[in-house]
Design a protein around this nucleic acid. Structure first.
Length: 403
DNA sequence: AATGACCACAACCGCCTACGG
DNA sequence: GCCGTAGGCGGTTGTGGTCAT
């Protein structure tokens, strides 16, 4: 409040960086690390404020930044994560290695947002634009469920970020060489301030849990979850998940419990605004409980490889509006991606060569989002859209850096 | 060729939070 | 507990490039 901007000092340069300035900044950080950003400009001989230097470094000069066009998969990931997290660009960026939050934000605002709008999908809610006109019943129920899920994942990411911070604080044994590159938002080459090892992007566990809810069979079987090699194959062999609920969205209590063996500590948030986080346990048995205002509660742990027990009520096919008992009946590349790309009209699928045909059927927001149509169509569109998002999580290739 | 509209992206601004004294 | 500082985050603006007329 009322703090003077760091760039108010007379004589400090603003605006685009010159190659010379870039060179100075690079050379200085390469040799000394950035240390205190405030002191850096003077030491490096730059007529810039520290904040400007930091931004230039994190958004442009950092050696682990990938520049250029976003791949199809990156686009999918951004959309899917945005549907879950909203405009939390830094959180989204943690799932897109080598991309900065600023870059993702810009790309969203200039490309993806428009594309979704074109499709007739509200880029904020990721729902069909005039869904508000639709009747309630099952659809709003579904939306409520999805909203809940998004809340969970959002809260989980928040907790995960805390975990990272804590582990960074604990860690004091790693150098800051440029050789091993951490995630985009974790690169902190401070010479005298060791940082933790780069943490690989982690699987959004809760999404797996969501998708898991509709697996009716065992892994590998038809209707069952994909084998570990297809999803996130994270090493936490003793992790378990138990879940019981009488329905998300009603006033009874749902409960998920993750028990893991991660070596990381316990994280938790207590007494949020309307949401309560509770950290329970020790490094070998972690529990994180989330309660929302509706007395639903979910517990997370920093663990993976969950085993689902009972969850039908929350995420059975009916609650998602499916009739065939299989939410994953659509192939993502043939569904959501095509839907997206077709509507964009300015891109072509270049990888894999699939997904170019089969435009009929349940093609989601067909017709470029005409904005008219029956409630049933919207119901289908909405369903397909979200299913595709969930599908993406589920169908990420094993070598995907994202999940 | 000139000009204006539009687009893409780098950079800035202001607020918030964590942290140390 | 209070205060000041540093750093992070998300929204917005500025600027250069491209396209259409």
């Amino acid at each position: 409040m009322g703090r003077t901007p760091c760039c108010d000092k007379v004589g400090l340069k603003k605006g685009p960086w010159t190659p010379e300035e870039d060179q100075k900044l690079l050379a200085y950080i390469d040799e000394h690390g950035h240390g205190s950003w405030r002191a850096l400009p003077f030491k490096a001989g730059l007529q810039r404020c520290g904040k400007s230097c930091r931004l230039r470094w994190t958004n442009y000069l950092r050696p682990d930044i990938k520049r250029g066009k976003f791949s199809l998969q990156e686009e999918q990931t951004i959309i899917q994560l945005h549907a879950l997290l909203g405009n939390r660009w830094s959180a989204i960026a943690t799932h897109l290695p080598k991309r900065t939050d600023n870059e993702i934000k810009n790309y969203w605002n200039t490309h993806l947002k428009k594309r979704l709008t074109k499709m007739g999908i509200d880029p904020v809610t990721h729902k069909p634009k005039n869904e508000a006109l639709l009747s309630n019943d099952g659809q709003s129920k579904n939306a409520a469920n999805l909203s809940h899920m998004a809340q969970w994942e959002s809260a989980r990411l928040e907790a995960e970020a805390r975990l990272v911070r804590q582990s960074k604080l604990r860690s004091n044994s790693n150098s800051n060489s440029f050789g091993s590159l951490p995630g985009p938002n974790e690169f902190t080459p401070v010479s005298n301030k060791p940082v933790g090892p780069p943490t690989p992007p982690r699987c959004p566990d809760i999404l797996k849990a969501w998708t898991g809810t509709v697996w009716t069979n065992k892994p590998g079987e038809a209707g069952g979850p994909p084998p570990a090699s297809l999803g996130c194959d994270l090493e936490s062999p003793t992790s378990t998940l138990s879940y019981s609920t009488t329905g998300i969205g009603d006033n009874t209590t749902g409960f998920i419990e993750f028990v893991g063996n991660s070596s990381e500590g316990i994280i938790g948030k207590e007494e949020g605004e309307g949401n309560n986080w509770k950290g329970i346990g020790n490094p070998s048995t972690q529990l994180l409980e989330f309660k929302d205002g509706m007395e639903n509660s979910v517990s997370f742990g920093a663990s993976h490889d969950m085993t689902m027990t009972s969850i039908e009520d929350a995420w059975n096919p009916e609650s998602l509006g499916g009739n065939d008992g299989n939410v994953y009946s659509g192939n993502f590349m043939n569904g959501f991606t095509e839907l997206l790309l077709n509507s964009s009209g300015d891109r072509s699928v270049s990888d894999g060569g699939d997904g170019e045909s089969d435009s009929g059927g349940d093609g989601g927001a067909s017709g470029g989002g005409s904005g008219s149509g029956s409630g049933d169509e919207y119901s289908e569109d909405n369903k397909n859209y979200w299913n595709s998002i969930l599908d993406l999580v589920n169908s990420s290739p094993s070598d995907s850096p994202m999940f």
